[in-house]
């Protein structure tokens, strides 16, 4: 598993904005409950969030959804600015956060162009009825530290450990391996896997949809590519006959 390069392909065309991924992520990763009060304070924690944009003028209004999570950039801007190495790149292509080291300078969160790093402004609390619902495989983060999407690293670790023990191979796209958001997506808009495995679904999608040698045929793009962060998340753009091509940065 050491030479895996985990990544995701998000088909924006398939996303219905149902927020199942958000809820799945919250319960899998012990993310504190975002109450109305927390939202109004603008301190909600959502490791994956579905952003909703309105397009067009009334009555021709269309809702557009885009799920945004940590892009696990190869050249992550959050990593060099942390004074205590609380965030670093592991050898599986993931950007990981070490909660014990974090002292909460919030430097990484400022430097993330995707705004996917979340700070624990308060001590997280769950109602009594939900305390037994917490995932024992995931640390409950205390106040004063940063947290972010881990690609459900606990699932990767458990699955590879069990596979090693039983002497079997892990198949691409196995439910036990995939992050909670991917498993919960009803339209399979999220696809997750190993970019180093040439036969994986994500590799095939990347091969098909991303540009090669300057020619661009597919729908694939990486978010804010102009910043040079080399994300490991590929977005496939929406299919819309009436949409006009706009170029933001050239």
């Amino acid at each position: 598993m050491a030479d895996a390069k985990w990544g995701m392909v998000i088909d924006v065309d398939k996303c219905t904005g149902c927020q199942a991924c958000v809820v799945a992520c919250q319960s899998e990763n012990n993310v504190p409950i975002n109450t109305e009060d927390i939202f109004n304070q603008r301190r909600a924690i959502e490791w994956i969030r579905v952003e909703r944009y309105w397009e067009g003028e009334f009555p021709d209004v269309k809702a557009r959804f885009i799920p945004v999570l940590c892009q696990h950039c190869d050249d992550a801007p959050c990593e060099p600015v942390c004074p205590v190495f609380a965030t670093y790149h592991n050898n599986e292509g993931m950007n990981v956060q070490i909660y014990n080291r974090c002292i909460g300078t919030r430097f990484c969160a400022n430097n993330c162009p995707y705004h996917v790093r979340y700070f624990n402004f308060w001590e997280p609390e769950w109602p009594d009825t939900l305390t037994h619902q917490l995932n024992p495989d995931v640390t409950v983060r205390s106040r004063g530290i940063m947290e972010k999407c881990t690609f459900c690293v606990q699932r990767i670790r458990r699955t590879s450990r069990e596979a090693d023990r039983d002497g079997r191979e892990i198949e691409d796209g196995a439910r036990e391996l995939s992050p909670a958001c991917v498993n919960s997506c009803p339209t399979s808009a999220l696809v997750w896997g190993d970019f180093n495995n040439k036969n994986s679904k994500v590799s095939n999608l990347a091969e098909k949809e991303m540009s090669h040698n300057g020619s661009h045929h597919g729908r694939g793009y990486k978010m804010m590519e102009n910043l040079g962060t080399s994300p490991n998340v590929i977005y496939l753009k929406k299919i819309d006959k009436h949409a006009k091509e706009t170029v933001a940065h050239e």
């Binding site: 060099p80 600015v81 942390c82 004074p83 205590v84 190495f85 080291r101 974090c102 002292i103 909460g104 300078t105 919030r106 430097f107 700070f119 624990n120 106040r143 004063g144 530290i145 940063m146």
Partner: peptide, 28 residues
């Protein structure tokens, strides 16, 4: 900072024995 009681590790980095190194690439 969020956890001032641990900020000494960064301002006065001393805990090399346990491998708690500071990241000299950081302006902080």
């Amino acid at each position: 900072v969020g956890r001032p009681w641990r900020a000494d590790l960064w301002v006065f980095p001393y805990d090399f024995a346990r491998g708690v190194w500071i990241n000299i690439r950081s302006p902080f």
